[in-house]
Amino acid sequence: MARVPFPHRRRTGRLHPERGASSLEFAGMLPLLLLVAMAGIQLGLAGYAVQQAGSGARAAARLAGQQDTADGYAAGGRAAMSGWTAKRSTFALSGGGDEVTVKTTVTIPSVIPGFGSLGTASRSATMPADEDD
């Protein structure tokens, strides 16, 4: 009975001629995997900036609605936000009469160094104003 050689054995006598092929395939796919990971991180940063802008707008509007703290509404809004979002935020107060509206804008940073920002995230909040006695 004739012996059947292994399917991956060649006449040269080498047992594994495709040795290292998976490493080359991984090296070829690595840039795509890194790009997808960086895009996911960038989307996470944008979502977090939107959430923080909303928190800052609500806190600032709450303070702006009170007569005695209407001047420090931006500082109160920044205090409700995390460090890097508070440094990149601006506040705009509008309204009058029965309610005040504060719009908070946060600049979204880029994951890739040197690209600056990739836009802004804005949220606004409206709160009732305290009435004068």
Rank of each mutant, 00 (worst) to 15 (best):
P128G: 12
D132A: 14
V50Y: 10
R58L: 11
R58P: 05
A86W: 02
G40K: 03
P109Y: 04
D130I: 04
S89Y: 02
G65F: 00
A49Y: 04
S55L: 13
G96D: 08
D98K: 15
T120G: 07
T120S: 15
S124R: 11
G65M: 01
R10G: 14
V4Q: 07
A21E: 08
E131G: 13
Q51M: 15
G77S: 05
W84H: 09
D133S: 13
R10C: 05
V4W: 09
T85K: 09
P109T: 05
A53H: 02
G20P: 00
L63T: 00
A59V: 04
G56Y: 01
I41Q: 03
A53R: 00
K103W: 03
K103C: 11
G65V: 01
T104F: 04
T104K: 05
Q52F: 02
S122G: 12
S82V: 15
G114R: 14
E99F: 12
A74K: 00
G44Q: 06
V102R: 05
S110D: 14
R3S: 15
D68T: 03
F6S: 13
P31N: 04
L63R: 08
V50M: 13
R9Q: 12
A125D: 02
L93D: 07
D68K: 00
S55N: 15
T104M: 09
Q66T: 00
A80C: 10
T107I: 12
T105K: 14
R88V: 03
